[in-house]
């Protein structure tokens, strides 16, 4: 799965040192909170679309609100997302 950030897969920060396997690949995250948010986001995308895997995820924005474009084959889902302080999705609005 391709992501658009070279740093933390969720926020692009290069601080921190969390490595975890997500979607079959070892990925870098700046902290456990970003890892949790990323996993929650992917799980929700799969739940909403029925996709069993994702080809790419592109995230734009920051803590105050992000847009995410996820794709699988010819399918694309664009959503506005936001998380609470514990990393749970509090907003997930396809647009």
């Amino acid at each position: 799965m391709n992501v658009n950030f070279a740093g933390c897969a969720l926020c692009d920060s290069t601080w921190g040192n969390v490595w975890a396997e997500v979607e079959g690949e070892r990925r870098f995250f700046c902290c456990e909170l970003c890892l949790r948010q990323f996993r929650n986001l992917l799980a929700r995308v799969k739940l909403e679309t029925g996709w069993v895997h994702l080809d790419a995820v592109e995230i734009v924005g920051d803590r105050s609100g992000r847009t995410c474009t996820a794709s699988c084959g010819s399918g694309t889902l664009r959503v506005r997302v936001a998380f609470n302080a514990e990393g749970t999705l509090r907003q997930f609005e396809p647009f």
Binding site: S13, W15, G16, N17, C30, C31, E32, L33, C34
Partner: peptide, 15 residues
Amino acid sequence: QADGSDSDHVRWLNQ
């Protein structure tokens, strides 16, 4: 703290 990936410290640096 950032090297230890503490969420609050990393967040502060990021923001």
